[in-house]
Nucleic acid binder design. Structure first.
Lengths: 127, 127
DNA sequence: ATAGGTGTATTAGTTAAGATAGTACACTTG
DNA sequence: CAAGTGTACTATCTTAACTAATACACCTAT
């Protein structure tokens, strides 16, 4: 289920957070679902339990999972919704990236065709 | 001219590389221009000379500047052109970011209006 | 030629973040 | 009770980034 690249520049615990978020957004993990335990993930990924917990703490802090001592971690209520809201903040980052590309001489038309391409893929999936 | 944020997560030498690239793309630094010396930049930014040199080495490695011992560093021939080519590779990253936003429920229309907004700003500048 | 500015190289040391290791405690469930 | 769970804690290791200090070879203007 999870996939970690230890050679990556982004920390392992951050990769874990990102993947859980992605799973929630795609529906692979739904609200109320049990997230794999710290120890089982530690074994499966050959990563120290402390690193797993660091990721879980962060997810808890963001209100995306709810930790229940003795039972496990579960995807929180409204997790998907709150995630959609926060991710929407990335529209700012999109503007930055587009500005950079424009600076490099990429035309508006090229950008638009890129957008069309992505949303073309989306349609394919919904067939 | 240069502006460094020592608290940033991105290393100082990387910030320097990015800024030189930006200056080349915007024309603030043209081909043949002399880049500030290692020592002067070190003083101006309160950064160790080694850190400045690390940035310059990287820029040299990328063929964007040409170091002449005893004289200084100069913006290389075709620097702007080769930079435009390499930056164009970021179209891939743009697709990724758009896909992520789509996953978060951002509509195609919102993305398009974001593109329009950026290129609207561009027109203003050319008045 | 000499002084001062340049790029470059080297060695050593510091700092902070990330990750590991091991242990321990309280809780829940079968 | 036993096994699995989240959580907490301390200690150690590793690496990247940065600093510090020094040295050398080169160019140029005085």
């Amino acid at each position: 289920m999870f996939q970690i690249d230890v050679m990556s520049r982004t920390p392992v615990y951050e990769q874990l957070v990102e993947q859980v978020e992605k799973f929630i957004l795609t529906g692979i993990l739904s609200e109320g679902d049990k997230v794999p335990s710290v120890r089982s993930l530690s074994m499966e990924l050959s990563v120290n339990p402390n690193t797993i917990q660091k990721a879980f703490s962060e997810l808890d802090r963001r209100g995306l999972i709810s930790s229940v001592p003795g039972k496990g971690c579960f995807v929180a209520e409204k997790a998907r919704e709150s995630l959609q809201v926060s991710k929407r903040g990335n529209l700012e980052g999109l503007s930055s990236q587009i500005r950079e590309l424009a600076l490099a001489g990429v035309s508006k038309e090229e950008i638009l065709s890129c957008v069309e391409k992505v949303f073309g893929e989306e349609e394919k999936k919904n067939d």
